[in-house]
Design a protein around this nucleic acid. Structure first.
Length: 765
DNA sequence: TCGGAAATGTTTTTT
DNA sequence: ACATTTCCGA
């Protein structure tokens, strides 16, 4: 029982309260994972069979970690039998076993977002709708939202409210598209991410035996991040838990950040009303952060209206104040962060892996990447493309998908003419038209190409293709998945093509393919465990990899700086955290400032970001940044103003600003309009959100004024600036591609000028 | 049918 | 800025 001694009072209570519904409100850093894992271990020590415990998480990583920690507490291998996984992966496993009841093949394909979008695109085209108006993304979001609310296409077609919304947006065909999409997926033997939830729900509601089976199988159910569940997940949990009612949900309403995925905070706010006698335990002691960081977090989240009352506190040291940093441009921001990491490493003996850079959108990663690379600081970007979403991987995987499930039209379309084999667009269009008219699959049409009226070279090409795929399919019965995949790579010529491509990308692609083959090998050769995990075929491999994300690629402990979105950082912690891009329209994002709910979610996002930090926190923003290829100026984020100044130390250095331009940030921005003209201090480009120069010089350029290129200047030179007039260069600094000159102007005084941007002319003597 | 050049859109977050 | 898609000539 010594595992209990490491817990505080409420934590222990949560572990020991095993029977009946339990809600744990776990503030950031309050030891939530510890409680969950200890609770599972405790149940098993009490004699509960691992096979009867279900734990659902939102990421594979969280699941893996949980399993490892339970194993660690218990020792031995019993923990392997636990059902721990993401909603999607656990349900995929169950649906695989039950697929035939639902009319799907056992080897059904799981469509990722790209597959789904490309199918929708094809449908929109077939329906001859305006592709600009019915964007795949938008249509899919609409369908996805309906599915997450358990509204099927029939119900959608009758839902006055939804139809009216579509009508108003001038998109009346969504309902029809939904219907076609669902039918097409079914015909293709495919489920998208949302279907994994919906079909699980269908299974439980339409097949009483299945309901009975799983209700009794899972005697204890635990759900992590309950604040991020959507109505479909909610309904499934309710059904699964109805017999034993041993449901334990863990969550923090303050960290609900997935409403765009259909998650609703209502689930956690109303849990108490869902069952009789719900035990509620709050974990309010934070073990992660310093007092300063926690104060800031508490202040930020207090601005939200709707939340469960709680007060996070900590015994930790007060720690340093958080640093607020303003820079001129996004590139300066990147440089500042890279410089600071280098400096902190030396000064406070940190390792690279102690740092994380958190941003609102993936697009922001680039400047940090560049600046880290320039300083030779190793880093890794999380998010973006997962390994399995890379083109070359998807291509080979598409072959495998088609072999395993020949109904999979998206896979077929992807590779039918890759590598090129003379089956072009025209042929494909014709074949799919026939397929849709006869309500059969594209593959069936191809297998009967002659009967369908194909002739000559085209017929020949199709037949060769069909024979090839069939030979792979036959091979699958006699060989393992790795052999088949290897043969596919070889016979299609994909591997050879990539091998011959000697460009950097080509080499990388070739290596990726090799890595894929290795991963298949590893999967098929890993010794099988007993029970339900026996299935090691290609089919289950394919289903599994679709559900993997970028964050699931190993090297957890590698000593690198981590870059990721705040969403991706949820559940993680780092000694030093940079939260960057705190600017209006970026964070809060422009998409989310029109309603209170959206804005509060952005604020929760900021809260999540702040609470990732253990000991040091930097918050930064840039006055101007490139977006869509052109320079835009942003005001500082409103969230910055919500932090009491007592907790902040401002740092505007290292930005090329002139000394003396030192004011609280929220004094800057538009307010300068009152003091007269807004003038750029550094770049010569007028910048909003920047402090006005104290003396505004009205210099009229000479007649022959023509700016010289940045590399034509040297220390000591006499120059003319378009705005500041005549002066002399005192110093030059910065790297050759971005030089900064300190110039003593006759009238405007000493200024720092970035030569890349300045309108500056050298004076001939 | 195929490859390169021009045009176009993308950026909110993810299983 | 970049990647993807579309267009156009061979």
């Amino acid at each position: 029982m010594d595992y209990l001694s490491e817990l505080n009072e409420p934590q222990r209570e949560a572990v020991l309260y095993t029977e009946g519904p339990l809600m744990i409100i776990a503030g950031a850093g309050s030891g939530k994972t510890k409680v969950l894992t200890t609770r599972i271990a405790h149940l098993m020590k009490q004699g509960v069979d691992a096979f009867r415990i279900l734990a659902l998480t939102f990421t594979n990583k969280a699941a893996r970690e949980m399993k490892e920690r339970v194993e660690h507490i218990l020792g031995g291998t019993e923990a392997r039998n636990l059902y721990i996984g993401t909603f999607h992966s656990v349900f995929a496993r169950i649906l695989r076993a039950e697929a035939e009841q639902l009319g799907y093949p056992r080897n059904f394909t799981i469509y990722d977002t790209d597959d789904a979008k490309s199918l929708i695109k094809a449908i929109v085209r077939e329906q001859q709708l305006d592709e600009k108006h019915y964007k795949p993304n938008m249509v899919l979001n609409r369908i996805s939202a309906a599915k997450n609310d358990l509204i099927n296409y029939r119900e959608y077609a009758q839902d006055f409210h939804l139809l009216q919304e579509d009508q108003r947006a001038n998109r009346p065909m969504i309902s029809k598209l939904y219907e076609i999409y669902v039918k097409r997926c079914f015909r293709n033997g495919a489920m998208d991410f949302d279907d994994l939830l919906c079909n699980m729900y269908v299974l439980l509601t339409r097949f009483p035996e299945a309901l009975h089976k799983y209700q009794h199988k899972f005697r204890y159910i635990m759900i992590d991040e309950y604040q991020d569940t959507n109505p479909a997940q909610y309904a499934i949990i309710k059904l699964l838990g109805a017999v034993h009612e041993n449901i334990c949900v863990v969550g923090d309403d303050a960290q609900s950040i997935y409403s765009f995925r259909g998650a609703t905070i209502k689930n956690i706010l109303q849990f108490e009303k869902d069952y009789e006698d719900v035990k509620v335990i709050k974990l309010e002691q934070n073990y992660r952060s310093t007092q300063s960081i926690l104060h800031v977090a508490n202040e930020v989240i207090a601005k939200n209206k709707e939340q469960i009352q709680k007060m996070l506190w900590t015994d930790n040291t007060p720690g340093e104040k958080i640093r607020l940093v303003r820079t001129m441009t996004d590139n300066d921001e990147g440089r500042y962060v890279a410089d600071t990491i280098a400096e902190q490493k030396l000064r406070n003996h940190y390792h690279e892996k102690d740092f994380a850079i958190l941003y609102r959108t993936n697009a922001q990663s680039r400047t940090f990447e560049e600046n880290l690379r320039r300083k030779n600081i190793p880093y890794r970007i999380y998010g973006g493309l997962s390994f399995y979403q890379r083109k070359e991987i998807k291509d080979l995987v598409a072959y495998l998908r088609l072999i395993v499930n020949s109904r999979d039209e998206e896979a077929l379309r992807r590779i039918i003419n890759y590598p090129t084999r003379g089956i072009g667009k025209t042929t494909l269009e014709r074949a799919s038209l026939i397929a849709h008219q006869q309500n059969t699959t594209l593959w069936m049409v191809l297998t009967q190409a002659a009967a369908c009226g194909f002739r000559g070279n085209t017929l020949h090409a199709i037949e060769r293709f069909v024979v090839m795929i069939r030979s792979f399919q036959i091979m699958l019965d006699t060989h393992n998945a790795y052999d088949v995949a290897f043969r596919v790579g070889k016979e299609t010529g994909i591997v050879k093509d990539l091998f011959n491509d000697k460009s950097t990308e080509g080499v990388a692609r070739y290596e990726n393919i090799q890595e894929l083959l290795n991963s298949i090998k590893e999967f098929t050769e890993t010794p099988t465990e007993d029970g339900e995990l026996l299935d090691k075929g290609l089919g289950s491999y394919l289903q599994q990899i679709t559900l993997l994300t970028d964050a699931d690629q190993g090297d957890e402990d590698s000593d690198v700086v981590r870059l990721m979105t705040i969403h991706a950082a949820k559940g993680l912690e780092f000694p030093c955290v940079f939260v960057v891009g705190l600017e209006e329209t970026l964070f809060p994002n422009a998409m989310a400032i029109h309603s209170r709910e959206d804005l509060e979610e952005e604020r929760r996002l900021f809260y999540v970001a702040v609470t990732r930090a253990k000991s040091r926190l930097w918050v930064s923003y840039a006055s101007s940044r490139y977006r869509f290829g052109n320079l835009v100026h942003n005001d500082p984020s409103r969230f910055l103003q919500e932090i009491p100044q007592a907790y902040i130390e401002s740092d505007f250095s290292g930005t090329g600003m002139s000394v003396g331009d030192y004011r609280p940030v929220w004094d800057s921005g538009r307010s300068t309009a009152a003091s007269g003209k807004t003038t750029a201090t550094v770049s010569g480009v007028p910048a909003r959100g920047q402090v006005a120069a104290r003396t505004v010089i009205d210099h009229v350029p000479s007649d022959n004024f023509t700016p010289d290129p940045p590399d034509s200047f040297d220390t000591g030179m006499e120059v003319e600036h378009q705005k500041f007039g005549f002066g002399k260069i005192l110093r030059l600094e910065g790297n050759p591609s971005n030089r900064i000159a300190t110039i003593q102007f006759e009238k405007a005084g000493e200024k720092k000028i970035m030569l890349n941007y300045a309108r500056l002319q050298a004076l001939k003597k």
